[in-house]
Design a protein around this nucleic acid. Sequence first.
DNA 1: GTAGAACAGTTTTTT
DNA 2: ACTGTTCTAC
Length: 680
Amino acid sequence: MRATLRPVDLGSLDEHQREAVLSGDEPLLIVAGAGTGKTTTLAHRVAHLIERGTRPERILLLTFARRAAAEMLLRVDGLLRRHPGERPSSGRVWGGTFHSIANRLLRLHGGEMGLDPGFTIHDRADSEDLVELLRAELDLARGDRRFPRKATCLDIYSRCVNSRRPLAEVLESAFPWCRGHAEGLKLLFRTYTDRKGEQNVLDYDDLLTFADGLLADPAAGPRVRERFDAVLVDEYQDTNALQGDLLERLRPGGRGLTAVGDDAQAIYSFRAATVRNILDFPRRYPGSRTVLLTRSFRSTRPLLEATNRVIRQARERHAKDLWSSREGGGRPELVTCRDEEEQTELVVGRVLALREDGIDLRRQAVLFRASHHSAHLEIELGRRGIPFRKYGGLRFLESAHVRDLLAFLRLAENPRDLLAGLRVLRLLPGVGPRTARALLEPVSSTGAFTPWRSARPPPAAASHWPALVALCEELAAPAAPPPAVQVHRVRQFYAPLCEARYDHADARLSDLERLEEAARAFADRPAMLAELTLDPPRSTQELAGPPSLDDDYLVLSTIHSAKGLEFDAVYVLHAADGNIPSDLAAGSSVEIDEELRLFYVALSRARDHLSVFFPLRYYDRPAGAGGRHAYAQVSRFLSPPVRAAFDECSAGPPGGPAAAGSAGPGAGPSIRKRLHDLFA
DNA sequence: GTAGAACAGTTTTTT
DNA sequence: ACTGTTCTAC
């Protein structure tokens, strides 16, 4: 019946975009520069597929953030709905991140290969906690040479799994200072893998590994594959080897596969993403078609001139200059300022001036390399009552009280989840790691809380015990109340413990009220837990719900979190060497190149106005004691040819620096085994 | 075994 | 500033 409708209107597309939209089911790579309309193109392609008879539920749209998928599908609806009241069909499209799609597929099909579909998911912090636990248990912390910290251990593990490379190689190339600990790490990683299995827990990397294993499974694989006719992947340059393999298994030979990306915007190699995926696409999928989009619909010509010059400095890239038909507009500006105070002052001044000119705050964004770079600005915005939302950096879910509360729900969901159990029990006074583990033992082995009825907790915890047992049994019951009610129950039990344990308990408890409100949006507990871990809200405001349309706020964001977005005006903070590039990432030319692309991503978010700030003096540690500051050099990426495309100004009297400074058992057994063997 | 105090080391980006 | 680790007194 769709076929009788007018085809999707392609009139607004240019020739290349149209080619991409209309391309058949041979493997398709769309190399789309910043602002060249890749979202539009992808949305049109999905709409076109649906119109041509592909059933929406047989389309899979993989994006980097879930928000991106939702946004894209909204546009698809707009394209398809030509009769008022027509039911949008895009709602049935599978959209989400690799991790969330893996989660869905594993819940549906995991059982077919022996994975217990009731698994819970460990986020990064949980994974670190488990590594820490095992590190102590295996006595690895001892010895003359310091064993890598838990975060580093997990980075190494994750890198092995995601890049599909052996430990020795990963150590050599990315963690040379840990070379001496190869044996200890192997032991740690084997144990880590086994322990997750026993607890029926998957971490982020496992989601991908198990999804890949599911697709490779002779029985289950074909059934998963035949769910989909078309698979579209956005931000393909930021996929890793494991994701690349997963896609190939999903679409053998690449039939029905569309990949969209821009090698100039690859900024996730620290997460084992590899540009090779996009560069090697044509070789991997013979008979594929490549479409190049180079016309920017976003930036004005003077801005594009500057960003083109920036990216030309990359050592290795696909040569492609973007061009713009957007005439007029001023040049970008490079503002040298005395210090952070002045930077803040100047940014706020410009933001307010543009708002006077009619550009809403939400059309303006302040971007920075590291989350703490915006601290000073945030204080000033707060002081002056200018609303803002910050994206990136420490999130709501990472705060201790939120993790405490969610641990209750996770434990009820999966009583074998050791981390959740430890977290819950250790809230009780008098219960430390030893007691907690002893108490958990019978619960882990039986999978139920009944043993706790007769357990004898330490005296200090005795008064809390009956309520805790009742709570856990209620939450774990088959007829458990809806998620919001569950959160409410936990909150009641938890409030006094929270007050006893933390400062600012009232603020923390009100966070939890918000969590309770947010919980109403979820159908059931597994959905709530999975979605919160896989697509965490970036701020308390975001948890409270999507912003209303008349809500105006300035956007503050790490450059990473700004990927894929555009703004009328962009302000880039701290364009000093040491910040951009970060001196933590300035080790090799490969790393420097990635920092350059990051800078490029920041600048290329701008449509009409772009200001780059360079404070001469900065604090070299986050608001450190004594306020030590150093004198900075301008970012090396602002070389003379680049600066020639900028208007330069220095505000205020130069404060003249004198010196130049430096600044479960049986669950997916074969996959588990292979993971294990990886570190044999 | 637990809890709190004293001490030491380190700071990016995120699913 | 903050987190994680170690030490000491219950």
